[in-house]
């Protein structure tokens, strides 16, 4: 799970978290017992739909301003160490 979230936990963290997460999962397990058969899941609390934007070009960001925030930039681009493989 940690790898999927790109987190690395120290042994100490792992010890501490495991107990805490188990306790939480025990608590939230109460929802498992609830009968919600046939109820639709709520993704949005309010029943609204279809917000659309006209296809009109707007402002773009200044590249230098954006790259000034980048940890490493080169040639107008964001530089990263070797990627190793294609996207999954």
């Amino acid at each position: 799970m940690a790898a999927l979230a790109r987190l690395e936990l120290t042994d100490e963290e792992l010890d501490r978290f495991t107990g805490q997460l188990d306790e939480l999962l025990d608590h939230v397990a109460e929802v498992e017992a609830l009968d919600v058969e046939g109820l639709p899941p709520t993704m949005h609390a309010l029943p609204i739909a279809n917000l659309l934007r006209p296809d009109t070009p707007g402002e773009v960001l200044d590249r230098d301003e954006v790259l000034s925030q980048a940890p490493v930039a080169e040639n107008g681009q964001f530089r990263v160490p070797p990627i190793l493989g294609e996207a999954p």
């Binding site: 690395e8 980048a70 490493v72 990263v80």
Partner: peptide, 23 residues
């Protein structure tokens, strides 16, 4: 993830850099 803004921890490849940064 250390690519576009904010903290970056160095590592020899991007997945490790992501992990080191987030950790």
């Amino acid at each position: 993830d250390g690519v576009r803004y904010g903290l970056r921890m160095d590592a020899s490849n991007t997945p490790d850099m992501n992990t080191a940064t987030r950790s």
